[in-house]
């Protein structure tokens, strides 16, 4: 047996190990480019009024949940009550980012389903969304006291995800102070 003939076996073995690892991963799940980086700055009107403005200064000193949503988004309605529940159970304020929506539509939606948000930033053109690397609504970010993004959920939050990751994460950040 010549050593050269072993090469194909070794290559295939490495290939199999690698593909086996690949099976344990979800290729379409993308980590945010912002994890452990400062939240992108913004300065936009609030949903309530053009005169009021909200900026990223709002994150200073508080652990915050940022929820990107829109009234035309079905999945947002599915996670809506969970957002309320997280805020109630952890005491973490939720800042909404209303994405590519109309004022009337968004306000009507909040009127109908309840408003869990401390304040809602209004982003009708989706510009803040792009700065935050939002691909599609809903997305939810966990922002630390110093304005650093710690975690991100893509798509609607499930109850399981809330109980197993999101709430423990928020509690852990709270205790870290």
């Amino acid at each position: 047996m010549r050593w050269r003939l072993i090469v194909p076996v070794v290559v295939v073995f490495a290939l199999i190990v690698m593909l086996g690892y690949g099976l344990t991963r979800n290729p379409s799940e993308l980590p945010s480019a912002f994890i452990d980086k400062p939240a992108p700055s913004f300065d936009v009107p609030t949903l309530d009024s053009d005169q009021e403005r909200i900026t990223d200064a709002a994150f200073q000193g508080n652990i915050t949940l940022v929820n990107v949503w829109a009234s035309w988004c079905v999945a947002c309605r599915a996670e809506h009550e969970l957002i309320t529940e997280i805020s109630r159970r952890t005491g973490v304020p939720v800042i909404g980012l209303n994405y590519k929506d109309t004022r009337e539509g968004a306000l009507r939606w909040l009127g109908r389903y309840g408003n869990p948000f401390a304040v809602v930033a209004f982003d009708p053109a989706g510009e803040v969304g792009i700065d935050w690397g939002v691909a599609a609504v809903p997305e939810t970010f966990v922002v630390d006291r110093d304005g650093t993004i710690r975690y991100k959920v893509v798509g609607a939050i499930t109850r399981e995800e809330m109980n197993d990751t999101l709430i423990p994460k928020l509690r852990q950040l709270k205790q870290a102070s």
């Binding site: 047996m1 003939l5 072993i6 194909p8 076996v9 295939v12 073995f13 199999i16 593909l19 086996g20 099976l23």
Partner: peptide
């Protein structure tokens, strides 16, 4: 499929090496 691939291809290449 990966297991099957490992058996068929890995086995063949071992046989080949021998």
């Amino acid at each position: 499929i990966l297991a099957f691939f490992a058996v068929v291809v890995g086995g063949s290449l071992l046989l080949y090496a021998i």
